[in-house]
Design a protein around this nucleic acid. Structure first.
Lengths: 344, 344
DNA sequence: CTGTTAGCGCGTTCAC
DNA sequence: GTGAACGCGCTAACAG
């Protein structure tokens, strides 16, 4: 041990593997082998090294390790909004699935902006992540395919086939049909739809499910009943205000996601319209909080947490060279108190 | 350019700085200088190199760079729950403040478990983050002080002084007083409190604020009115159910956070008790969604987003050797429709 | 089983 | 201005 360092540096010097090796009286390679279990080491040396590691409080340098090994034990996750309740659940699922693999998720946000998404992905790749999970977003398919040539990639919210790539899509169309059908079954005919942004594939599919359920039930879809919003609470509120201002009659609302359903419900409330007595409301996503709003919201369950888990597990498999596999559960309608039979 | 590689490797080989240098006909050092602006380079070479970088789609290896420079341009963020609506806002603030600094946040979750928190922090440090933001959590002060000897550290939710460390604490006590005083001003005397977990400093402070506001108003605090919950919706719901089952009379509820206020509000609803007509409800945090629940929730605004921004900005400053600085805004009560004068 | 050697891809002296 | 040489901390390949 070098005890005659003249100036004790301010910052505690980082302990290196080489220092551990020297103090334990072995070679760096041996320490490395113990750390990685990459070869058998005599019990005596192992004990000595482990003691030194503990004593010196040695912490391996992940950068150096990554450089040498060519893998970083980290996977990049592109979400869109770090505070989104929906994607938040997906992130929880990812975290949980990764927990015991030794890998750590590097989470960045794309804000639904192509520019941000590309910039963030490049950032992740320059950090040499071992794989990538892209939660929906607005990247063109070709770009995803190209990124998949660099690292294994799992993308949600679209159907896409390609080498080194897996996609996970929830059936928005069927989910929207179930929600609409539920309202039809309750006797509703004038069903409004608070749509999502129409540059989102999910929104389009949900709108289509809504329309086709109506048609199949012999109800003529009325464009006046479709209001466009943005998947957020204020948008849902404005949408219903519009509808009311235009005096368009309706007895039920199917919102393209729970957040806009919350806004819609508040708009109804401030007009003195009761839910579900006067008007039924159905959402989409089944956020954790939707079970605790008043009245609890009937909603199509989107398995966000499971989606995260499935994506992460599949990605880890792909990184280890296994074929991509994993499927999302089928849509499911969770009926709660916000919807009830039309009173006549 | 080496065109005679016999076997085209499956994975596209990573472009290295050295390859860029060779194709551009300059030395690696020159490319490095251009990349980092660390020295003047002739316009001719610069143009040539930049062209090659674009053409080869060169992406610098952040690991190698970190190893060589001793900094990684990443800062570690320990949150508690990646899907928490409250901490989610803080993360947004952090992301935003870091956006133009070139640094990227590495976000990990501690789940309020000491074990997880330590493990995650060690993970971040082994990745050689340049600094650390710890969002509350349950680490003892001494540990934080020790971590601060390794990297600059900002911690929220507590008061702590130390070298290389900054703490940011919101005044929970004053906030709770404001909430309680608001209800007192409205004529309420039987005010229930749905408390948070009592191993959280915030919970204790909010309970204290509640109690002292009552005392100062000449109202004798009644322990029967204090129910313990867990900062989550189900806990708030159970708490109110308990209160009702025990037939403890009350006309208002102050919940230790918005999520338990939601649960409380639902419990009241399912007992046919109206808010605010029969009972007033006040929360704490002012989550984004609290403005959109029915009725919109009166709440103490905790500036989570700003907190994240302030923490990140301060940390960046500290990393650059500036003294720690930054303060949180004062508590503020946002009055909405969930509270109203006691009818007599 | 163990030590020695040679990189991983960059930044950074230090000469020229 | 520019290039050659070395080192960041670690793993891998090769000897023994």
């Amino acid at each position: 041990m070098t005890t005659d360092r003249p100036i004790p540096s301010e910052l505690p010097e980082n302990i290196t593997l080489e220092m551990v090796a020297r103090t334990a009286g072995v070679s760096p390679a041996t320490v490395s082998r113990i750390l990685n279990g990459s070869a058998r080491v005599s019990e005596r040396k192992r004990a000595a090294v482990e003691a030194v590691i503990k004593e010196l409080n040695y912490r391996p340098n992940a950068l150096a390790r990554g450089l040498a090994q060519g893998r970083t034990n980290s996977i990049g996750v592109l979400t869109q909004d770090i505070a989104s309740p929906f994607y938040g659940e997906a992130l929880r699922g990812i975290e949980n699935a990764l927990k015991d693999t030794g890998a750590i998720p590097l989470i960045v946000s794309g804000h639904w902006l192509l520019r941000d998404e590309v910039e963030r992905l490049e950032h992740l790749l320059s950090r040499r992540v071992d794989g990538l999970i892209v939660l929906t977003g607005s990247l063109p398919d070709e770009m995803l395919l190209r990124y998949a040539t660099e690292v294994p990639l799992v993308v949600t919210g679209r159907d896409l086939e390609g080498p080194n790539l897996m996609s996970l899509r929830f059936d928005d169309y069927v989910g929207a049909r179930m929600a609409t059908q539920h309202l039809i079954d309750l006797g509703h005919k004038r069903i409004a739809h608070v749509a999502g942004p129409l540059d989102h594939f999910d929104s389009i599919e949900r709108l289509r499910g809504y329309r086709e359920a109506l048609v199949d039930a012999g109800i003529q879809p009325d464009d006046d009943l479709v209001v466009h919003a943005d998947f957020h609470e204020p948008g849902g509120l404005l949408a219903i205000n519009q509808l009311i201002a235009a005096r368009t009659p309706f007895t039920a609302v199917f919102a393209a996601n729970d957040q806009s359903a919350f806004g819609a419900r508040l708009a109804l409330h401030s007009h003195g319209i009761r839910v579900p007595e006067d008007i039924s409301v159905v959402g989409f996503d089944d956020l954790p909080v939707s079970n605790y709003v008043v009245p609890p919201l009937t909603s199509v369950k989107q398995p966000a947490y499971e989606m995260g888990e499935i994506a992460a597990r599949a990605l880890v498999g792909m990184i280890h060279g296994e074929p991509a596999k994993g499927r999302l559960p089928q849509p499911e309608l969770i009926v709660r108190a916000s919807s009830r039979p039309l009173r006549r």
